[in-house]
Nucleic acid binder design. Structure first.
Lengths: 238, 238
DNA sequence: TAATCTAACAACGA
DNA sequence: CTCGTTGTTAGATT
């Protein structure tokens, strides 16, 4: 959408509820629109006060009538979509998102039924936002380590117990990050860096380091097109 | 659909126009229905007169009020779908069929635009019924030979001339078959075998025979999951 | 021999 | 650190 058209449609609207699903942020603009924001492979969405400092670099700025507002710096592949409310349910990129793992309705039972008896590999399945919305290649590393699962395990071979452990691992890792307000290289709305530092990682990005459980050297392997960091002893493939 | 339900819906209707698209036969049943027939990997759909002979073996029979009718013997993977006319446009298996190459609107210009600059291999593209409806693994053999193209040629590398030759080859081979009323092992509605015999094939199913153009031995190769018969000299891959 | 849908996977590009 | 698109392949279908 051309910038003019975007600005024309947004100007004068009132920003209402802000929600999220997976990696998407939904801002309701009254009347009749939604602004959908996706930071892609990284970026900062930060607030500024009236007369306050703005970041050196940003690609998007939205100002409120009181002089405050926010900017967005996209680092790679981010996007903003402006969608009429009547088109929201069919919006190609967000209509088919799965549930957020930290959603109340994402129960152990829901997760077990979702897994079913598929042929897919567990990592590939969890990274697919249509299945579960919000897990990326950063958090998946420790999730699978905590669950004791190799990224290439076929879902149909998971035992009840393994599925339950996986559910718990997802909750543990993601809630820890929520608590710490995200990764070190991310900022929250008020510009504060996240507290989820390298020290938090158990195996992710720790190639050659000892496994925190068994001291085996952590390996980096290729799983499809993404990298995985695993303890070969704690996460065997059989 | 259970047999009873099928029979109940068909009984008393009037068979109107019969048409085809690719490998599908459409029979309009008045009022409000279409019977869609697909013979899959082979079968005979033959008429019988009142009091006339019926084939020894068949899986489907439809009788008209005058005592005539037709039977279908399916050899593999055939099917009949009964669809309400209001659902026809969304019917999963027929809604996305491409044009028949012998349709009037299948012009050289249409074909050239359809090919575009894709990465797909030419054989795989032509066998996909969403692109072009009606070419199977039998006729594709001589089509590609007549066009001088290797089945694995990338579409984006085709010259204007090669695309034009391919268009002509499709027309030549398919029209010849229409003229001869199909393959030797097929029957028309009146039970007559087709006249497109093995003698008509140039390279298809002729492994080891000399190429009709250059005498090179014809080879059988694997292309994806299908077999291809080619003259390695007339159909080089570069 | 012949057909084709589906799921999973890989290459590619923005 | 992402993900949609396109195309390929293995498996299933009866």
């Amino acid at each position: 959408m051309p910038v003019d058209e975007f600005a024309g449609k947004v100007k004068g609207k009132i920003a209402k509820e802000v929600s999220s699903r997976g990696k998407w942020i939904f801002v309701r603009l009254e009347p009749a629109y939604f602004m959908l924001i996706n930071l892609g492979m990284g970026g900062d969405l930060v607030y500024f006060t009236q007369g306050g400092e703005l970041p050196e670099k940003y690609q998007f700025k939205l100002a409120f009538t009181d002089g405050s507002g926010f900017t967005i710096r996209f680092s790679w592949f981010g996007s903003i979509h402006l969608v009429h409310e009547k088109d929201l349910a069919e919006h190609r990129l967000t209509a088919h998102l799965g549930l957020s793992p930290i959603d109340d309705t994402f129960t152990p039972e829901y997760f077990k039924r979702l897994l079913g008896k598929r042929k897919a590999r567990i990592k590939s399945f969890l990274l697919n936002q249509k299945n579960v919305a919000g897990i990326g290649n950063v958090y998946i590393q420790d999730i699978l380590f905590v669950a004791g699962l190799h990224p290439d395990r076929e879902i149909s071979t998971l035992t009840e117990e393994e599925a339950a452990q996986l559910y718990d691992a997802i909750q543990t890792v993601l809630n820890r990050s929520v608590q710490l307000r995200g990764l070190e290289y991310e900022k929250d709305f008020y510009g504060r860096k996240g507290g989820y530092t390298m020290k938090e990682f158990l195996v992710g990005y720790k190639t050659g380091h000892p496994c925190p459980t068994c001291n085996t050297r952590i390996e980096r392997i290729k799983t499809g097109s993404t990298s995985s960091y695993i303890c070969p002893k704690c996460q065997p493939l059989e």
